[in-house]
Simulated assay, not measured.
Amino acid sequence: MTHPLVAKAWETLRVEEPEPGLLVVTLNRPHRANAMNTTLGEELIALFGTLEAAPHACQAVVLTGAGDRAFCAGADLAERNGMDDEAFARQHYMFERMMRALLACPVPLIAAVNGAAFAGGLELVLSCDFAYAVEGARFAFTEVTRGIMPGGGGTQHLPRSIGARRAKEIIFTGAHFTAEEALAWGIVNRLVPPGEVLAQALATARRIAANAPVAIRQAKKAIDHGLQADLRTGMQMEIEAYYQLIPTQDRREGIAAFNEKRPPRFTGR
């Protein structure tokens, strides 16, 4: 059965299900370097809101951009040209909701960074669980060169990822940095040759999808919420998540499969 998000008609996204349980969401505005306009933001809210409401509907999501030039160049400044303060604030609040929708994705969300990721585009990358990037990709928080600042989580995600001092240099200067630097600093997990980033992200998503779905969702929840707390509280959150898995069929299946020397057949229950 075709996933309902694949069947839906999107204006700025392309949604595909290359195999059951895996979704590829492509920012599909290559003529504008996949920059985020109002429609794209609203469609991402709708898509990830649907996933949050139906966590069993898929097991992993890969987010990428159309073409080989840009993952996402940030907000579409052509659309913002001439906006009055009220309209600007209204649109930005929508982008805030969009980023929160990505963070609420209940299943692993992998960024396949196929090109430049600037400003809000880099914030999209940082809102994913982890990222692979093409060799030669470029990154930057350019907002201060346009009279604003990162406002989609950039000032919070980046220092948590690479440390406050390096994050301040990146944000205060607006300077570009390379894919190699992004890898060394931990912003991306892997660099891949041109044309291969989506395939490698999908290979990892496939490996994730072979594991117990409820266990993956509980582990993600424990990591994400535990990082917002002190160590002892985080460990308690981990145990609360762990004990939710004991009565599942998948837990019993995993033990049985090991002892019967066969691959497990997880059902997400």
Rank of each mutant, 00 (worst) to 15 (best):
R207A: 11
A116R: 14
A116C: 14
D250W: 06
L22M: 12
P20F: 04
A241D: 05
G154K: 01
I110P: 00
T173P: 05
D68L: 14
L126N: 07
E79G: 10
I110D: 04
V188N: 03
W185H: 11
R90H: 15
R165L: 14
H92N: 15
A131S: 06
A215S: 10
I162C: 05
P159S: 10
H56T: 15
R160P: 07
L40I: 07
A87W: 03
T26K: 00
I246Y: 11
H176S: 11
G74P: 08
G186I: 14
M98A: 04
L13G: 00
K220V: 05
P55V: 02
A137Q: 05
H225M: 14
R166H: 06
T2W: 03
T64G: 03
L47G: 00
T173G: 06
A9L: 07
N34D: 04
Y132K: 04
R262E: 05
F118L: 15
T248C: 07
T26L: 01
T64P: 06
Q156F: 12
A33R: 10
A210Q: 12
L122N: 02
L245M: 10
L202Q: 02
W185M: 10
L44M: 08
A119M: 05
M99K: 02
H92E: 07
G120K: 03
F71T: 00
F177D: 05
A60G: 02
F258K: 14
M237S: 04
N81K: 15
I170L: 15
L40H: 03
G226F: 06
R269N: 15
I223M: 13
Y93V: 15
L158F: 09
L124S: 04
P213I: 05
L51C: 05
A137D: 02
A117S: 01
D85K: 13
T38A: 12
R138Q: 14
